[in-house]
Amino acid sequence: LVRYRTISKIPQITLNFVDLKGDPFLASPTSDREIIAPKIKERTHNVTEKVTQVLSLGADVLPEYKLQAPRIHRWTILHYSPFKAVWDWLILLLVIYTAVFTPYSAAFLLKETEEGPPATECGYACQPLAVVDLIVDIMFIVDILINFRTTYVNANEEVVSHPGRIAVHYFKGWFLIDMVAAIPFDLLIFGSGSEELIGLLKTARLLRLVRVARKLDRYSEYGAAVLFLLMCTFALIAHWLACIWYAIGNMEQPHMDSRIGWLHNLGDQIGKPYNSSGLGGPSIKDKYVTALYFTFSSLTSVGFGNVSPNTNSEKIFSICVMLIGSLMYASIFGNVSAIIQRLYSGTARYHTQMLRVREFIRFHQIPNPLRQRLEEYFQHAWSYTNGIDMNAVLKGFPECLQADICLHLNRSLLQHCKPFRGATKGCLRALAMKFKTTHAPPGDTLVHAGDLLTALYFISRGSIEILRGDVVVAILGKNDIFGEPLNLYARPGKSNGDVRALTYCDLHKIHR
């Protein structure tokens, strides 16, 4: 019993810090008490220290592992850092350059016999395009090294910054494609005289377009951006097909006994025919423009016929181009109408809503002055909100995010209106959640004399007048207030005048 009563005193000691020596009952000389009392004092002292730490809000209350900052290894790049964003855009520009100039170089340097010394005699450094290609190869190699040090988000939505895990993730992902696209074939085969082989191998750079397509997928929600990307894709495919079309004609031209190829026909049409040795002929500019003209006309199913396939190889390629053109029509131009419709969806919704308003007016036989006010209010409210119901949009977000959005939407009023000066951010967040926005066209009466005042109004834009009878008592403008002081009276009061809008007004109100 003594032991039980001794232990039962522990909660009292913990909360009230009572010393055991003052209790005459606990001072009985028993061996059990002498053993338990020192333990009680020690526990009391420890609990006292913990309570003191909690009340003082000291940093040592938290466990040590929670006080440590997340460790980022040296030379690790955050995937959302500004440097990584700028670097990704730079790589994107280099990939676009590669997609345009690599097929052009591979096709127009394929057994090209233009006048001038061969590239091997001039030297590697004197070729501007080769120098640019070398810079692109170096940048792609540097990009691989950067990807080995860039964080990523795993399946659990955690940012991984450990170098080993980053390397394994990159090896399992895009490393092989990036490595093949970054191989400097110019340096590996330079001086061997195989410019045709170098041009063909350099087309491996186009593998990076797969990554670019995935990154550009984030802009699919913007109709104008999608339309622009589709047109660029169409032009890029036409450019690639033009390079292939020229390569076919250029390879067949020296081996044909009869002059029936499209390059021969082009030379005869523009007065620059090929001679018996295969030299001469149109310039590279004429060849490229004509090839691009043929691919565009074939892809769009126009086909004027002034550039036509004559050999079997050219006919087979033309059939493939027609098939590609039909697929592009289905996948690209078939979506253009939907994209344009999405661009004008706001206008369509406006006309639909206006039609419903006019049908309501016609069905209920609203008189002319009231009908005009109804239409003007709808037009003004639509121009202010673009038909978007803010309350319906915010309803799907958590309250903390709703408060931040409301604070942002009402920031101008909260910053410049005098009653809100000096208020804490928590108070402003709470008030912003209570605001209701209303609009009024010129001549609209917001409050009639004798109406119950259940709200306090803040003028965000425009001006109003307060009338008693036919006498203008006051004219209020931006950041002015009218209405009933909230919670100042037990019952809502009545208006002693009319409140009429002089201009288009936007008002925020808080109800009782």
Rank of each mutant, 00 (worst) to 15 (best):
L227N: 01
L230D: 04
E196N: 15
M322P: 01
K202I: 01
Y219N: 04
I332D: 02
Y329N: 15
R211L: 01
F360N: 01
L343G: 08
P103R: 01
V136P: 01
Y219W: 05
I198H: 06
T385V: 03
L145V: 10
Q127W: 01
S277V: 05
F234V: 04
G305F: 01
M328K: 03
P309L: 01
L109V: 04
L414E: 02
T295G: 01
V357N: 03
L216Y: 05
E359N: 08
K425E: 15
Y246E: 01
G267H: 03
Y170S: 01
T437C: 07
P184I: 01
N306K: 01
R421L: 08
E375A: 03
Q415T: 08
R208E: 03
K272D: 01
R165E: 13
R211V: 01
S337I: 03
L266A: 01
G281R: 01
Y104H: 01
R208Q: 09
A213Y: 08
I366S: 01
S345Y: 14
P282W: 01
I72T: 15
T295Y: 01
R429K: 15
A238K: 01
A235S: 14
V307N: 03
P118T: 15
S301T: 15
A449C: 12
Y124V: 05
I135L: 07
K418R: 07
R211H: 01
T98V: 10
Y97G: 01
A291G: 01
P273N: 03
L109F: 08
N154C: 09
V95I: 13
V132Q: 01
G422A: 13
N335F: 04
K272C: 01
N391D: 03
T76K: 01
D444M: 09
K215T: 03
T203E: 01
I339T: 03
S277R: 09
T98Y: 01
L241A: 01
T290W: 01
L241I: 01
V447Y: 12
H73N: 05
S297T: 11
I244L: 04
V168C: 11
H79W: 01
D217H: 05
K418C: 04
V210F: 04
I248H: 01
G199D: 08
A423M: 06
V159T: 05
Y65F: 06
D133Q: 15
Y97T: 01
H416P: 01
L428D: 01
F397Y: 06
C427S: 05
P398D: 03
H416I: 03
T203L: 10
H79P: 02
M322A: 04
H169S: 05
T120V: 07
G199R: 15
S192A: 10
A235F: 07
V447M: 12
L370H: 01
L323C: 05
E64N: 13
T438V: 12
